[in-house]
Design a protein around this nucleic acid. Structure first.
Lengths: 159, 159
DNA sequence: CCCGCGTGATTCAAATTTGAAACAGAGGAC
DNA sequence: GTCCTCTGTTTCAAATTTGAATCACGCGGG
């Protein structure tokens, strides 16, 4: 049944749908955020992540890891956000090598201003295409996909 | 129940899972293809699309559209693929403005060589995280997501 | 004929991303 | 103390992407 070297019709349909949805959605959300708030989706996600962290700050390395981006890419984006006044850097007294990115008050305001439109778009373009039950299945499956793609072992129940 | 300005727990879980899976998967597939075949995922997709087209050729504009990429981005990638000898351009006798990208024999060989590893990776990282029934639901939902993100109307049953 | 317009594609400069190399400080071996 | 090496981050050059501008051509109207 499962040809090893080719995708069958059903597999191809799901796979192409995923890739197409990911690309189109990313473009659309980027466009929406740029038009309405002047920031990119990546920058928005950086702000969100900082906002939800204790004291609204995170170390560069940890932030890069949670965003699944490279350290150098994050350095660049934090520099952009710093220019825009939405984030500032501060060193760490304990470990002089560490650098914290801190969400500024302007950054928090930007988030408050940008969130409603962005979230409405996520609902309109993504969430509403599924039932709540489907979303739950989707979330489980996609978390597993992410784990596998990152080369992590499957989560064990006893862990 | 549905707070207009915020994502609830279930919505957030599904949405973050989707974004995380898309990013991580894209990185991983790019890495796999580069290591094993020396081409990027985008280039692979270009080759696949051409291979499945009549006469293994497509007009630049049509190709860009089916890949959901920009025309200029495609021009660049076709130039790269042309340098590598995997694709060639040819003009169109009927319409001198039109340009066709044509898959070369080397391109076809590249595809044959790269496909097994790539498809195995897609299976391992993506498809196997779902049951066939889940994949069908996923495909329907994600196709709808892509349509919405592209601003197309919902497909009508009578169409 | 000549102009302006529409289409299909490429080119250009600017922004972003990537991966490698550089940097800087801490800690351990000796 | 000096030398390695490790960790956390930034910097750099090269590759890629983006959107705007440009180019080239055919067509219809004046």
């Amino acid at each position: 049944m499962t040809e090893p070297g080719l995708l069958n019709e059903h597999e191809a349909r799901a796979w192409y749908a995923f890739v197409g949805a990911a690309v189109s959605l990313d473009r659309r959300l980027d466009q929406q955020l740029k038009e309405d708030s002047g920031i990119t989706h990546l920058q928005y996600v950086v702000l969100v992540r900082l906002d939800s962290a204790p004291d609204r700050e995170m170390r560069m390395g940890a932030l890069a890891e949670t965003l699944h981006t490279t350290k150098s890419g994050l350095s660049y984006q934090i520099a952009q956000l710093e220019k825009a006044g939405l984030v500032r850097r501060r060193g760490c007294s304990g470990d002089p090598r560490a650098v914290y990115a801190v969400l500024t008050d302007d950054g928090r305001r930007m988030l408050e201003q940008a969130a409603p439109g962005h979230i409405a778009a996520v609902r309109e373009f993504f969430l509403e295409a599924f039932t709540p039950e489907q979303l739950a299945v989707l979330a489980d499956g996609l978390n597993e996909v992410a784990r596998r793609a990152r080369g992590e072992a499957a989560p064990s129940v006893t862990r």
